[in-house]
Amino acid sequence: MAQVRVTVDGVNYADDVEPRTLLVHYLRERLGKTGTLVGCDTSNCGACTVHLNGQSVKSCSVLAVQADGGEVLTIEGLARDGKLHPVQEAFNEHHALQCGYCTPGMIMQAVDLLGDNPDPDEREVREGIEGNLCRCTGYQNIVRAVQSAAQKMKPGATADAQTPASVAGGGN
């Protein structure tokens, strides 16, 4: 067993884990963060994407012990103070998800992408999410959503766009 101390979605945890425990399994099985999903075993699908110390990673490709001392943000911690992140909002508005299985990873990767490139063109979005597979949408609406979120997140975007809907709302 090895000890891991990690902050996940703003909460501090200290746990003994087997060194072989993947970060994604730690999140799902120990912390109950089942919003982060597993879609493959070869690092292709990106469904398990979370942020580790501010950067997107595939949490199947990080050992929990490697995250020791780090800060993890999952899809479950993305909305702040009851407000959806603009990328979450845009995914809803642009019908960028169907079955929802790739969605947590896709959103986390899109958020990372916009951090690096606040105004990506279509090609840049497509390449920015190339590590995340979706089988439902054909990606078109995902690309639209990411570009739309980019516009909303621009400094000086309209106040309306900066006030995301309530997380709990759901009654769109």
Partner: peptide
């Protein structure tokens, strides 16, 4: 040795390798 782990972890996940010790 594990550096970034992006080649090692897929191999470990599929149990194509099974080292006794991983040095990070």
């Amino acid at each position: 040795i594990i550096a970034g782990g992006q080649s090692l972890l897929p191999v470990l996940r599929l149990r194509l390798a099974a080292p006794s010790l991983v040095i990070d």
